[in-house]
């Protein structure tokens, strides 16, 4: 029993470690690829913020699925749930309204 428990702990530790290695590797790939792609436009910034924050948990939806007023409520809800900064909240909301 103890042997199996120890084996499982090893499996868990190993899978955690592998996850970390995978993430670090993927991050390294990403940052190398993204170095030359950084842009300075506000619009692109808003679009990236929208995509990165929302797509972290779920698919992003078309702005037309909700009205401007509804987006105000939804984005306020998501500010708390997804830990958005006030600036991110404002930029995402403006982007959704502009695309509506």
């Amino acid at each position: 029993m103890n042997t199996k428990r120890n084996t499982t702990r090893w499996i868990v530790s190993l899978s955690g470690l592998m996850m970390l290695i995978l993430v670090i590797s993927l991050t390294a790939c990403q940052s190398t690829a993204a170095d030359g792609e950084m842009d300075d436009s506000d619009e692109m910034g808003a679009s990236e913020i929208w995509e990165r924050n929302c797509a972290r948990c779920h698919n992003i939806r078309s702005p037309s699925t909700l009205s401007d007023k509804q987006w105000e409520t939804a984005v306020m809800h998501m500010r708390v749930r997804a830990n958005l900064t006030p600036k991110e909240q404002r930029l995402i909301l403006e982007l959704l309204k502009a695309g509506n």
Binding site: V12, L20, V23, L26, A33
Partner: peptide, 21 residues
């Protein structure tokens, strides 16, 4: 807990990694 979510062009897709204990 750990969450890593990103498109990976080299993999022609996006990857979502989660770990929680």
């Amino acid at each position: 807990y750990l969450a890593y979510v990103s498109p990976i062009p080299a993999l022609a897709g996006s990857i979502d990694v989660r770990f929680e204990w």
